[in-house]
Amino acid sequence: MSRVRKPKLAVWKFASCDGCQLSLLDCEDELLTFAEVIQIANFPEASRAVIHGKYDISLVEGSITTSHDAERIHKIRRQSKILITIGACATSGGIQALRNFTDVSRYIAMVYANPEYISSLNKSTPIRDHVYVDFELHGCPINKYQLIEVCSALLHGRAPVTPSHSVCMECKRKGNVCVMVAHGTPCLGPVTHAGCDALCPSYNRGCFGCYGPKETPQTASLAKRWKEIGATNNDVVRAFRGFYAYAEPFRKESEAHEDE
């Protein structure tokens, strides 16, 4: 391993809160080993040093919200052998995709004193809508262990273990009691992608859907049940319109209840 050239890794930021990059910095115990096996060539959140050239792995955080960024992502794609998007913003448009449901100029006018200086696209879109993405790692923020797992899997040529089944499976393997059945707490677990180790249900909270839709999500059935246990249309809209608001299954479900 040591004789081989270390793969070059770059981290890129688009419209985001930097939380996913921080997950990487958060890998305190593993960071040194990480640096042993990977050359971190570009990681603005960690260091200003930049090594140019072709990157073996690019981690992309954030969504595309400006025309400048829509250009920039193509450059990055050209420089990257493997491009991995990390987090809700990069994989689905993020919380800022709430603008996609309304007229963005309204927000701009509300927030900025001189809206004429703001140049922004109407929609916040995932990286996948712009360039080919090799792998998507979900979460808001991503789970650091999953990030290490993906990098480790890539380095050693195996398939990453990041199952796309429900949060319920992690929740029940952990031995948690179902908060929805036992406490009547609305929970998005049954339609949400695993990866957080069932964080919220482990503390008796309902799942917020931070990891986005799971494989084959049956959101309509869950929404129906939520209402049976007391949720309003507005509750359902707000639940699905969170960090993964613009992910297709969640978007459709929120829109279905908005009209009612």
Partner: peptide
């Protein structure tokens, strides 16, 4: 049934 079943796997876990 598939319109109701969320394939969340709870039944199999419990």
């Amino acid at each position: 049934i598939a319109t109701r079943c969320m394939n969340c796997a709870n039944c199999t876990m419990v």
